[in-house]
Design a protein around this nucleic acid. Structure first.
Lengths: 407, 407
DNA sequence: CGGAATTTGTCTAAACGCGGAACATATACT
DNA sequence: AGTATATGTTCCGCGTTTAGACAAATTCCG
């Protein structure tokens, strides 16, 4: 039951019905491909004639294409199968991180086309824009088989206003109110979409999942690395909030008198479960930035820690288990406030999932209000799936499939 | 940008455009009444003919009525003003609380018609249903001028599945999986809608606010009394979650090692800011249920405490200020995760708002990530406005104005 | 091998609603 | 009294869904 905003609404025009049904058809083809016009009509409960007209419109825009004839199940004419046309259309995904920036070329459906390439991130926005433009052009030239690039999606670790194309604040990059989209778009001649990395990851999961329970309910993506990034999906839409800062569960406290967090407050979830927090726990002292580290500490990663924990290092195991417990306790806040159908977790710590799952689960149950809250589905997203890059790609691909704004 | 759920969608039919525009017209009349057909057409950017047809449909269903002719601004024919028809249609709101149950009769727009009546809440669901049915019938009989009662809305302190009409769990009433709706509806012969009280309050604020910044963004209602009830509105819709438990910010922790909460966990926000927590702080010992209290303690309320604080009792002031600080710290979690355009706060503690506002504000700023997050609008809802009862009423009135499900 | 049955995809006519313009009505200004 | 202007109604054109008929393609069966 949604309220119509009397200050910002969309009246239904003559073509609105068509627009709605066109998008439904497109999404059904996407979800069920290969599919015939007749099956599409059955799924939509419309006559075959309507489905045929919708399909011909989609064909003329080459959003879909007609493939080979399918096998008839019983007797009767064989159906012509329809597919989403992801041939020759490509998308570039960019993942800007504090240290390195990653680039990936995919087709419209997010299928990886090349290898992930990366280079060092320049904190100077002009230099970075030039670097990006040059490398993206090169990448597109290398893949001459793809003719048109639909756009570039950029995931940024920080606050982003996608409508304005500006990075409002990215602490790790020391950016404040920077226009990243327009210069890059101008340099490339291709549309550019930017978004906060947590929200982008949530978007990618939303558009790639086939689970209908996730599609109808809420879901949350939690990315745990240097910081904790989160994205929340409510009613099939990424939650933005008034200032594009919704979903920052990383800074919900576990203990307001707890350790100092990078955000300036104390005891944020991030201050307990970030990679640095886990390592600090292992080394027994605060490793936060600015403080001098010993050589061993500087190159030692969470993966190394997990390896030691698996090898039987009791101190390493204790540090990991401690993080696991705090992880579960923080997830409980997400469950109690959002009640998602599924939580996605990404980040280095997830490579230890088989070790930590029971601890996370029991900590989660400890603080959730209901039994089914404690049983909330948790889905690990391995680094190999490149969730941030896929999220960046989804920024470009998703709008073509989105529901039209109505009422 | 919303994703279409390929397993649950609504195809646009021949009448869908009309349905959409009808609801838009109805909402515009509601928001701008009195309004003429010509102005309505201008607001909707459609021709007057279309607006006229929509209006005549609404008139035939007597959702609106034609009032007196307005004054012409310049020259030309005088417009006929249209109004929402809230005459002769009434709604009953019911607020079930642990100790007492309150009933209110309003018109369709939520205007109070009678006085708020109340009686002791029976924990026996059958007895309570009978009590409610009898008193509601009596109340309707007393107001013979209203002919038709559109429905009864019931706000319940606990988990509710509105679709099934069941109370899944209400700890303070010791109810578990109870069907409250159907027996009451059967006894009254009127449709009954039930909902969690926090969500109902959020709904009421959504439907009564005229602020367009609230209408377009998220908003949160926080009700602080024995417990902390919350309701979250995202994109003009109350956030439900997978199991109807979304929005329970009362059990997000301030300190996981903090005081025991009624939910079984430690250090929930509720355990810091509920009335009992505030009083416990004043008396210097835990007053949670089950423990014996002294006579003075048992009858002493938060209002009394606030009165003493205002009168200069330093100990009372310290207790109130302490609650204020925790209140602000907890609100920060809401701001960081939901980024609402406005937060509504109800409950006894708000009678001290002039005292505590600076403390709440500074605590909020302490933990919010951005300056504008710390400046989030806070709106006090006084008890005289009966937010829970208005929420119950909104359950009945809102569906008639809601956007049609499309795509 | 040929006709019946069945399925797919296209086409046509009807129903319905928006888009645009003309028309009647009502009021104020000159 | 006549003109200008605004409101509300009516009529027709056009796009879209709805319903049904029809051609094409394929299998089944006599």
């Amino acid at each position: 039951m949604r309220k119509i905003n009397p200050h910002d609404f969309k009246v239904a025009r003559r073509g609105t019905s068509r627009e709605i049904n066109r998008q439904i058809a497109l999404n059904l083809i996407r979800a069920h491909q290969p599919i015939s016009r007749a099956d599409l009509a059955r799924l939509m409960s419309v006559r075959r004639g309507v489905a045929s007209l919708l399909v011909s419109e989609l064909l003329s825009e080459s959003l879909i294409f007609e493939g080979a004839l399918g096998e008839a199940v019983g007797r009767g004419r064989r159906p012509t199968f329809l597919y989403i046309d992801s041939r020759q259309r490509c998308v570039v995904g960019v993942d800007i991180r504090a240290s390195r920036t990653y680039i990936l070329l995919t087709d419209l459906m997010g299928k990886q086309l090349g290898v992930v390439s990366s280079f060092q991130t320049s904190r100077d926005i002009d230099v970075l824009t030039k670097d990006l433009a040059r490398r993206i052009k090169q990448m597109l030239a290398d893949f001459s088989e793809v003719s048109a690039c639909e756009g570039v999606g950029v995931a940024v670790p920080g606050m982003v206003d996608p409508a304005l194309g500006r990075v409002l604040h990215a602490p790790t990059l020391a950016w404040r109110d920077v226009n990243l989209r327009d210069p890059l778009a101008a340099a490339l001649g291709i549309p550019v979409h930017i978004e906060n990395s947590g929200k982008a990851c949530a978007l990618a999961q939303l558009w790639t999942t086939r689970s209908d329970v996730v599609a109808s309910g809420n879901s949350v993506f939690v990315s745990i690395s240097d910081g904790v990034g989160t994205g929340v999906v409510v009613n099939g839409e990424v939650m933005r909030g008034r200032h594009n800062t919704a979903g920052e569960f990383g800074h919900v406290p576990l203990n307001i008198d707890g350790p100092r967090c990078s955000c300036g407050a104390n005891g944020c979830w991030e201050a307990y479960v970030s990679n640095l927090a886990t390592l600090s726990r292992y080394f027994g002292r605060d490793l936060s930035e600015g403080r001098p580290r010993e050589a061993e500490e500087a190159s030692f990663t969470v993966e190394d820690l997990i390896a030691r924990a698996r090898a039987g290092d009791a101190k390493a195991l204790a540090a990991v288990n401690s993080t696991a417990r705090y992880l579960g306790l923080g997830l409980a806040s997400i469950v109690n406030s959002v009640d998602p159908a599924r939580i996605y977790i990404g980040g280095e710590i997830t490579t230890a999932w088989s070790l930590i799952e029971p601890i996370v689960r029991s900590a989660l149950r400890e603080r959730t209000l209901t039994d089914f809250g404690g049983a909330t589905e948790i889905h690990i997203v391995p680094a190999e799936e490149h969730p941030r890059l896929r999220g960046a790609v989804a920024l470009v691909a998703a709008p073509a499939f989105a529901a039209p704004m109505v009422a």
